[in-house]
Amino acid sequence: MAAPVLAPRRATGGIVAVWVVAAVIGIVIGLFVPADWRAAWLVVGLGGSLALACAVQLAYGRSQGYIQRVAISVLGAFVVLGVISLGFGLASIVPG
């Protein structure tokens, strides 16, 4: 019989790490991808964030709450990339 885990590690670090990586991906897409292809690459970036979230939460080593932690990670990455996409859209309509 396995001994219970007395003080499990907090999962918030892995969740926030996925959000930060999503922000970095969004900024890199904004800097290096032409405006016509940004929406498509943001979807690819979100897919990469999903894969990263799964990997980070698997590395966490606890099965309890896995789906919830991955969902929070991906939802946060979706919101981060959405805000960055909104910034791209607003920047494209401002005359410069």
Rank of each mutant, 00 (worst) to 15 (best):
M1Y: 09
A3S: 14
P4W: 05
P4D: 11
P4F: 02
P4E: 05
V5T: 15
V5W: 12
V5A: 13
L6D: 14
L6E: 15
L6Y: 12
P8V: 07
R9P: 09
R9A: 12
R10K: 08
A11K: 01
A11H: 03
G14T: 06
G14R: 01
G14L: 05
I15G: 13
V16T: 13
A17F: 06
A17V: 09
A17T: 13
A17H: 11
A17W: 08
V18C: 11
V18G: 05
V18E: 03
W19H: 04
V20H: 12
V20W: 09
V21K: 05
A23D: 11
I25Q: 04
I25Y: 07
G26K: 00
G26C: 01
G26P: 01
I27C: 08
V28W: 06
I29T: 02
G30L: 00
V33M: 02
P34H: 06
A35T: 05
A35H: 11
A35M: 05
A35L: 08
W37H: 04
W37D: 06
R38V: 01
R38C: 02
A39R: 00
A40C: 00
W41E: 14
L42A: 00
L42E: 01
V43T: 13
G45T: 05
G45S: 10
G47E: 09
G48N: 06
G48A: 15
S49P: 11
L50V: 04
A51Q: 08
L52I: 07
A53M: 01
A53L: 03
A53W: 00
C54I: 08
C54H: 09
C54W: 06
A55H: 12
Q57H: 11
L58Y: 12
L58G: 06
A59R: 07
A59N: 10
Y60G: 07
Y60Q: 10
G61S: 08
G61C: 10
S63K: 08
S63V: 07
Q64M: 08
Q64F: 09
G65I: 01
G65L: 07
G65S: 09
G65A: 05
I67C: 12
I67N: 12
Q68N: 14
Q68T: 15
Q68D: 15
Q68F: 06
R69Q: 14
V70F: 02
V70G: 06
A71R: 02
A71V: 01
I72A: 07
S73H: 05
V74G: 06
V74K: 04
G76N: 04
F78R: 02
F78I: 01
V80C: 13
L81C: 11
L81V: 10
G82H: 13
V83Q: 10
V83M: 15
I84W: 00
I84R: 03
I84D: 00
S85W: 10
S85M: 13
S85E: 15
L86A: 15
G89C: 07
G89I: 03
L90F: 04
A91G: 15
S92I: 01
S92G: 10
I93L: 13
I93V: 10
P95E: 07
G96M: 10
G96N: 14
